[in-house]
Write a protein that binds this DNA or RNA. Structure first.
Ligand SMILES: [Mn+2]
Ligand SMILES: [Mn+2]
Ligand SMILES: [Zn+2]
Ligand SMILES: [Zn+2]
Lengths: 138, 138
DNA sequence: ATTTCAATGCAACAATGTTGCAAAATTTAT
DNA sequence: ATAAATTTTGCAACATTGTTGCATTGAAAT
C-alpha cells in the first residue's frame, strides 16, 4: 500500500513527503470523493490547512485527482484513473451524489452522453452530475 | 417592464420592495446567469450584501430563479421558466459555460439525457454542464 | 391612520481560500 | 556521507464568501 503511494508520487515527479503520502492514502482508503474539510478532519492537526490546499492543487495539476462539480457548489476531489496525466484529464464519467448519506461517487463505467448544441456552440467538456439515492441508502 | 416585475413578485406572494424589483430586473436584462458578485457590482452600494443573499434565497425558494452547478464551483443563478413554482423546479435543461467570455447560458431547448445507473442507484435530478465556446466567441 | 407583519441594514461572526516569507525537509551534487 | 540546491511546509496575515441575531425600517392589512 505504502509502496503504491510512493510509486504514484514518483511517477509524477513529486518529492515524497509525509503530507502527500498521508493525503493520498486518504483517497485510496475512501470509496467516495473527499472535500478539503474531510481531509482536514481525517488528518487532525497533523498538517496545516494551507498544506492541504497546496497538496490538492498539486495533485490536480499532475492528474492524480480531479475536481467534481457538485450541485451544492462545494469542491470535492476524487482519484483519477491511470489514463489521466499532467494537464490532461479525461474524465468522461458521470458523478453521483447521494441525497441521503452525502457520498459522492465516480461512476467510472457510466459515460457522459454527448448532446446536440445550438448553432455556434462548441463543447470541450461535458459534466453530468446525478443526484438521488445510492445503493447503500435505497 | 416594471409591470412584469411587479406581477412576478405578486404572483409569488412576495411583498414589493426596491431590492427585489431591482435584483429581478437585473435577471430580466441579462441573457446569461448571474453570480452574487455580479449583482453586487450592478447594484453598487444600493443594497446590503446580506439583502442580496436573502433575496436570491427567497427567489430560489419561490421558483423564480434556479442555481446552476458550475465546474469552477461558483454559485450562479438564472431565471426559471414559468412552469417552475415554489418547492418544485423542473429544470431539465443543459447549461453551458463559455471558456472565453465566462457567460453561463441556460440552453432551454436542450434537455438532459437520462443515463443508465448501476444497480441500486436511483436518480432524482440530472445536471449537465457543458463548457466550451459560445456562439459569440467561436 | 393604526396595527401587524415582513424585509432591511448593521455588526459580528464563521468558513473558505490565498499570498509572502522564513524554517524545515527533501533531493541533487560533491 | 556531507554539503549545496531546491522544494515543501508552517505560520501569519489577509481576502472573499456566506451566515446569524437584532433593532430599525418599510409594506401590507385592518
Ligand atoms: Mn470522478
Ligand atoms: Mn438554467
Ligand atoms: Zn447514500
Ligand atoms: Zn462566450
Amino acid at each position: 500500500m505504502n509502496e503504491r503511494i510512493v510509486d504514484l508520487l514518483k511517477k509524477n515527479h513529486l518529492s515524497i513527503t509525509d503530507s502527500r503520502k498521508k493525503i493520498l492514502s486518504h483517497f485510496l482508503d475512501s470509496n467516495g470523493a473527499l472535500a478539503h474539510a474531510d481531509i482536514e478532519h481525517k488528518s487532525g492537526t497533523e498538517f496545516d490547512r494551507v498544506t492541504i490546499y497546496r497538496t490538492l492543487q498539486t495533485f490536480v495539476e499532475k492528474g492524480i485527482i480531479h475536481t467534481i462539480p457538485t450541485t451544492d457548489n462545494s469542491v470535492r476531489y476524487a482519484l483519477c484513473k491511470d489514463e489521466c496525466s499532467a494537464g490532461h484529464h479525461h474524465d468522461d464519467h458521470v458523478h453521483f451524489m447521494c441525497d441521503e448519506c452525502g457520498t459522492t461517487y465516480c461512476l467510472d463505467h457510466v459515460t457522459v452522453p454527448k448532446v446536440e448544441l445550438p448553432a455556434g456552440f462548441t463543447a470541450t467538456q461535458n459534466d453530468l452530475v446525478v443526484s438521488g439515492l445510492c445503493n447503500k441508502c435505497s
